[in-house]
């Protein structure tokens, strides 16, 4: 049962507030959704924590799990960025401002923000999986939370500069004294003034200090696979390295069995796990 009295499987009604492409190739589209009912909004923000995800629903097409890309202080809406890869995300890409859309969530555990208080944060993202890290950065960087955390370092890589999401904020953060930001692209481009190379290599080059720090890694599986050991080599302990897992999901509530990883369900017990927790789970990803 959800707070609104409906079944676990029934989406809540939302409408598209803003819809815009993040990248010139139109492979990434951001949707900002408003709640049809105030009580759904209240229930959402009471439960919400950066790092969680929702299931967006298009009737006739199905549901797709997407990370929440906004912080609660931004206002009474929920932001998602969808890459056009399957039939549901293709349908989501067709949505425009004013269109109805269903949503279930927030789902999953989110980032353990309370445990991270007083620590330096090293946030490492790649591609469109950066969305929840964007939510995290927005949350931490906000004046009401900023004093809870130490130094803030952001490393963000994309294939091309065009595929960089949330360009407005990223550009502002480059100017921000409060934050150390390292941006990278895989392939050299004219007039590019930041790193060129894959994220794991950039991490090695930047070599963030493990001193009183936690590292959070979200990216495509291949990036995560090579970034986690790079952080261990830098001296981060497995307890202080976090990542968000992706697996095919259906129900989002730990019932359908699909995202089962050992005794855990990624949708319910995850998607955020420390490397120490991950090391104790079977290599079934």
């Amino acid at each position: 049962m959800q707070p609104n009295g409906h079944s676990l499987y029934t989406p809540i009604p939302m409408h598209v507030l803003h819809a815009y492409y993040e990248s010139p190739d139109r492979s990434l589209k951001t949707l900002e959704l408003s709640f049809d009912h105030a009580e759904d909004s209240q229930a959402f923000f009471e439960a919400f924590n950066p790092g969680q995800f929702c299931l967006l629903s298009v009737p006739g097409k199905g549901e797709s799990a997407l990370g929440v890309a906004n912080a609660a202080w931004e206002g009474d809406f929920v932001r998602f960025t969808a890459q056009n890869v399957g039939s549901v995300t293709a349908a989501l890409h067709k949505l425009n401002a004013g269109d109805p859309v269903g949503m279930r969530g927030p789902k999953g555990n989110g980032f353990p923000l309370n445990d991270w208080k007083g620590k330096n944060l090293v946030i490492i993202g790649g591609g469109c999986a950066f969305s929840t890290l964007y939510a995290l950065t927005k949350h931490v960087h906000h004046e009401s939370h900023r004093d809870d955390y130490g130094k803030l370092t952001l490393i963000y890589g994309t294939r091309t500069s065009g595929l960089c999401m949330y360009k407005h904020d990223i550009a502002a953060w480059h100017e921000d004294e409060d934050m150390e930001i390292h941006q990278a692209i895989d392939i050299p481009e004219d007039n590019w003034q930041y790193h060129v190379g894959y994220v794991p290599d950039v991490v090695k080059q930047v070599a963030p200090s493990p001193e009183n720090a936690v590292a959070i890694v979200c990216g495509p599986p291949i990036m995560t696979k090579f970034t986690l050991p790079a952080l261990v080599d830098l001296g981060f302990s497995p307890e202080n390295i976090f990542t968000s897992l992706e697996k095919r999901m259906k129900c989002g509530v730990g019932k359908c069995g699909r995202c089962n990883l050992g005794p855990q369900y990624i949708c319910k017990d995850g998607p955020v796990f420390s490397l120490a927790e991950l090391n104790a789970l079977p290599a079934d990803l």
């Binding site: 499987y9 629903s57 199905g62 259906k250 359908c256 069995g257 699909r258």
Partner: peptide, 18 residues
Amino acid sequence: CFDIVDETQRRERVRNWD
């Protein structure tokens, strides 16, 4: 385990054993 599938003609989202 079950799968969740949209049956457009029935205007339903259903679950099937998987």
